[in-house]
């Protein structure tokens, strides 16, 4: 079962072809952002301000890495639980965000917004932080420096492994697993 290779930022045609359950390896540039950065971005937008990074067409990875050891690009960097970002996600999708990477299921509102904006939600393997860090070639803090591990970083990744959970046509791998697999 080989993984589909995709270059970031994703284009609309690539997103249209993705289906829940597809294994994908991502190469290119993505941003990080988790709880505190999402809260601040949402507050900025609600106050009529503009975001410190242009999210149009971009992918956000929900991660708060461990500190890099000397000689490391980044510390361990697995996904955090995505549902905590759900209250803020439709706002960011409206800004043109196209890809999200995290772990765990999304709210109905987010799933609907993913379909409406033809975006995609991927899961990385939760708890595989040391393995995933190996695919990150560079990490640069680009906004919200005061948030520490929760700041926004720009990551360059190479063959970063993910699985499509929610595709742009309403497919949902977690729901499919519960519906179909007893495996006996």
């Amino acid at each position: 079962m080989s993984a589909k290779q995709l270059i970031l930022p994703l284009n609309q045609q690539q997103i249209r072809e993705l289906r829940a359950g597809d294994r994908v390896e991502l190469t290119g540039m993505m941003y990080t952002g988790r709880d505190a950065a999402h809260k601040r971005m949402a507050e900025t937008l609600q106050a009529g301000g503009s975001l410190p990074v242009d999210l149009a067409g971009q992918t956000i990875y929900y991660v708060g890495p461990t500190p890099a050891k000397p000689g490391q690009v980044i510390g361990s960097a697995g996904p955090t639980t995505s549902s905590r970002m759900d209250p803020y996600t439709p706002l960011l999708l409206a800004q043109g965000l196209k890809g999200m990477i995290g772990k765990g299921s999304r709210s109905e509102a987010v799933k609907n917004a993913i379909v409406q904006s033809e975006a995609v939600y991927f899961a990385a393997i939760g708890g595989a932080g040391a393995l995933i860090a190996k695919t990150i070639r560079s990490a640069e803090m680009v906004a919200y420096h005061d948030l520490g591990t929760e700041a926004i970083y720009r990551l360059e990744v190479e063959r970063f492994p993910v699985i499509v959970i929610n595709d742009g046509v309403g497919g949902d791998l977690y729901q499919q697993s519960l519906d179909s697999t007893r495996n006996d």
């Binding site: 359950g21 294994r23 361990s76 697995g78 932080g129 040391a130």
Partner: peptide, 27 residues
Amino acid sequence: AVAEEVLSQLLQNAEIAAAERVPMCQD
């Protein structure tokens, strides 16, 4: 196949963490 692949990656992750003395998970 997906389940097998996930478990393989988790075992590989544990090996990397132990060999390189880095945390297995960022949390």
